Amino acid sequence: MKTDRQIKNISRLNIPWKTQDPFLFGTYHHERYPGGDDNLGLSHGLEGRNKGNDFSGKDGWSMYHGSHIPGFPSHPHCGFETVSIVTEGMVDHSDSMGAHGRFGDGDVQWLTAGNGINHSEMFPMLNKNANPLKIFQLWLNLPAKSKSATPYYQMLWSEDIPKLTLKDSHQKNTILNLISGYYGDKISLSPNPDSWAADPNNHVQIWTLDMEAGATFVIPPLEENVNRSLYFYQGDTVTIEEEVIESDHMVELKSEKEIVLHNGDQRGLFVFLQGKPIAEPVVQYGPFVAESNEALKKKLKEYRETEFGGWPWSTSETVHDKNYGRFSVNPDGNRTDK
Rank of each mutant, 00 (worst) to 15 (best):
K276V: 02
S96C: 12
G60W: 03
P16Q: 01
N330E: 01
H30L: 05
S94D: 13
Q154P: 11
N263W: 08
Q137R: 03
F232H: 06
G235D: 11
T336E: 12
E305H: 13
N263T: 07
F80Y: 04
S247F: 09
N127D: 08
A149K: 01
T216H: 06
I206K: 10
P151L: 12
G71Y: 11
D59H: 14
P312D: 06
I161Q: 14
T82K: 09
F217W: 14
I10C: 13
I117H: 14
L164C: 08
A215W: 06
V83I: 13
E280S: 05
A290I: 02
R49T: 03
V86R: 11
G35Y: 04
H93M: 10
W61V: 02
G181A: 00
F308Q: 02
S158N: 10
Q154V: 01
I206S: 12
M211Q: 09
P191Y: 01
G268N: 11
G104K: 14
L142A: 13
S56F: 03
V283E: 06
D194V: 00
T27A: 12
A279W: 10
L261M: 07
Q274S: 04
F55L: 13
E317G: 06
V319W: 07
G181I: 00
G275T: 00
E252D: 04
I135N: 13
R304V: 10
L253T: 11
N177M: 05
F136E: 02
S56T: 00
N50D: 15
N53M: 07
